[in-house]
Design a protein around this nucleic acid. Structure first.
Length: 568
RNA sequence: UGGGGCGUCGACAAGCGGAAAGUCAGCAGAUUUUGGAUCUGCCACUCCCAGGUUCGAAUCCUGGCGCCCCAGCCA
């Protein structure tokens, strides 16, 4: 166990991988050494599921005083792109992990991987097969029927060597030949039925250019890459469990350093999708604005949305690591985000759906500056001054002409507090010719300056507000879940996940008013808009002097819950 | 009569033969110049089911049942 004293070290829950690592360290299995790796393929942006893997691999290395390498698994040039390698590195750093000088690429090992293939051919363990893709599939058999051996399976070693060399030299067309491992066509495990090790692809690679005309398959390149780097624990997801015998086979046949592959269950989260294939479709079909759309579960999207690295790391710790398929409630992620932001985010007042309030007994043209606390959770954050004047904006939702009993906010004849300012009382409602509320007239009690009544009288609500004359205009985007179904992956007949896209996943409000201090907020800055939620300055669309805000997550809202319950 | 994996509260998840941890969600209350935060209490007589071993089983054994993954020259 890592924590002998749970009272002083309440952290890290136990999981089976930590246990294996702890045991291996104790028995000295790998010389008391631990090394992991995070091996993304640069064919898409990293998402929260990758964050789980990153936290696991880097976290384990940290915990056991080992190292975690960073490696691009770039063995398929047709799907990979430099844009992805750059975004991936940025995202891992942003999450808070560092690989120092241990940045590797599987493509850097191509020569060694090739030489090892030659070694397998010489040992009679690999052969060049001339069957085409369809034929290979046919010969492979099915889940219940064994496969048939390829007619090219027993070529001489010399012929194999010659053909493989010529594959490398580009003498043959794409798809005309492959190099296969000679294992067992009748294995119950289809991965062992003479799997393809190399295919011909006359395509340029983003790193090796036109040097290679053949590229190794994942199943062959991955164990070797792990081995070359001296990895001890090769952690991957559950779907590779069936590939482990093959991982072991290559390493055993070659007689080289043999890491232990360990599989864990990938993350699924409610109301979103976490597969690069599906995320790519959302991007390509224009359902979102890009990989970094704030609604995307990508690290780039969550960063732009205002999620913090600490919140995501914390989430990854809380969800645990196991082998069971699960669907984690997105409410847990949101809890982690609020937990972190509650401690850090400066409070500020912003009115999203404005309703004008005129304080009839407040002197025309007068203004005053009131003290406001920047963060009640953090006294060191200090205070600021906010301007008050005769005309203000409050939130439309904070006024009701005919309120139900549970509504505590402003209503005709009722008195409430304006945060850090005064008690005000609603005297009348002004409507336009269509009967819509245009503004409301209130009186204020000068004796309640700062928000307390000297006579001790209480109000049931405190509202946020912004002085009309001093307000900064802004656009604010309200984000909600991307999907309406908790698990969009399990789609019914003839449907796919896109049929559950939430049409209201974003609402743009462009007549919002902010307290003046927000005019110069920098892109990326995060705030709590009091009583509303956490918001951050959008990094793509903000202009100097006119910030655009993205809602990161709402505050918990008791009133909204009551409304929802009564509308059912 | 292919192979592999997994079943503990609504969602996650500890537990490793000796009284079913914890977190999120939910519910109730206290407190509050954010219907926020904070605090308190409640929320699995039972661990997919059935047998068996044992003084004692979520943990061990046997047999069922259910769910997931695999037939790319993707990773």
């Amino acid at each position: 166990m890592t924590n002998q004293n749970p009272e002083t070290a309440p952290s890290a829950p136990s999981n089976f991988i930590r246990q294996i690592a702890a045991e291996d360290m104790q028995t000295g299995k790998f010389g008391g050494r631990l090394m992991t790796r995070f091996p993304p393929e640069p064919n898409g942006y990293l998402h929260i599921g990758h964050a789980k893997s990153i936290c696991l691999n880097f976290g384990l290395a940290d915990e056991f005083k080992g190292l975690c390498n960073f490696r691009f698994d770039d063995t398929n040039p047709s799907k990979e792109d430099i844009e992805y390698v750059e975004s991936i590195m940025e995202d891992v750093h942003w999450l808070g992990f560092d690989w120092a000088d241990r940045l590797y690429y599987a493509s850097d090992y191509f020569e060694r991987i090739y030489e090892h293939a030659v070694q397998l051919i010489k040992a009679g363990k690999a052969y060049v097969c001339d069957l085409n893709a369809d034929q290979i599939r046919e010969y492979r058999g099915t889940l219940t029927q064994p496969g048939k051996e390829s007619p090219f399976r027993n070529r001489s070693i010399d012929e194999n060597l010659d053909l493989f060399r010529r594959m490398r030299d580009g003498e043959f067309e794409d798809g005309s030949r492959v190099l296969r491992a000679k294992i067992d066509m009748s294995s119950g495990n289809i991965n062992m039925r003479d799997p393809v090790m190399y295919r011909i692809k006359k395509e340029d690679h983003h790193r090796t250019g036109d040097k290679w005309r053949i590229y190794p398959m994942y199943d062959y390149a991955h164990p070797l890459s792990d081995s070359y780097e001296g990895i001890t624990h090769s952690i991957c997801t559950i779907e590779y469990e069936d590939h482990r015998p093959l991982y072991d086979w290559f390493l055993d046949e070659l007689g080289i350093h043999h890491p232990q592959q360990i599989e864990f269950a990938r993350l699924n989260m409610s109301y979103t999708v976490l597969s690069k294939r599906r995320l790519l479709r959302l991007v390509n079909e224009g359902h979102v604005s890009g990989w970094n759309d704030p609604r995307m579960p990508t690290l780039a999207g969550m960063r732009r949305r205002g999620y913090t690295p600490a919140a995501i790391r914390n989430f990854c710790e809380r969800i645990g690591v196991g082998k069971k398929e699960s669907l984690v409630d997105i409410a847990l992620l949101e809890y982690c985000v609020r937990e972190d932001l509650n401690k850090k985010a400066p409070r500020v007042m912003a009115v999203l759906r404005p309703l004008k309030v005129v304080i009839t007994n407040y002197p025309e043209g007068q203004e005053e500056f009131l003290d406001a606390i920047n963060n009640p959770e953090d006294p060191a954050a200090g205070t600021r001054k906010v301007p008050f004047s005769k005309e203000l904006y409050i939130e439309r939702d904070d006024f009701m002409e005919a309120p139900p009993k549970q509504f505590f906010r402003l209503a005709p004849g009722r008195e409430v507090r304006l945060r850090y300012a005064y008690f005000i009382k609603c005297e009348s409602v002004v409507k336009d010719e269509r009967g819509e509320i245009k503004e409301i007239h209130c009186t204020y009690d000068p004796a309640t300056r700062g928000g307390d009544a000297p006579d001790g009288r209480k109000v049931k609500a405190t509202l946020h507000w912004v002085s009309a004359r001093h307000a900064v205009g802004s656009e604010v985007r309200l984000y909600d879940a991307l999907f309406t179904k908790d698990n969009p992956n399990d789609s019914g007949e003839g449907k796919d996940f896109t049929s559950y896209l939430n049409p209201k996943s974003v609402e743009t409000l462009d007549r919002c008013y902010l307290e003046p201090g927000l005019k110069d907020a920098e892109p990326g800055d995060g705030f709590q808009f009091e009583r509303l939620g956490y918001f951050c300055v959008d990094t793509a669309d903000s202009k100097p002097g006119r910030p655009v805000f993205n809602r990161t997550v709402t505050l918990k809202d008791e009133w909204a819950k009551l409304q929802k319950a009564s509308s059912k």
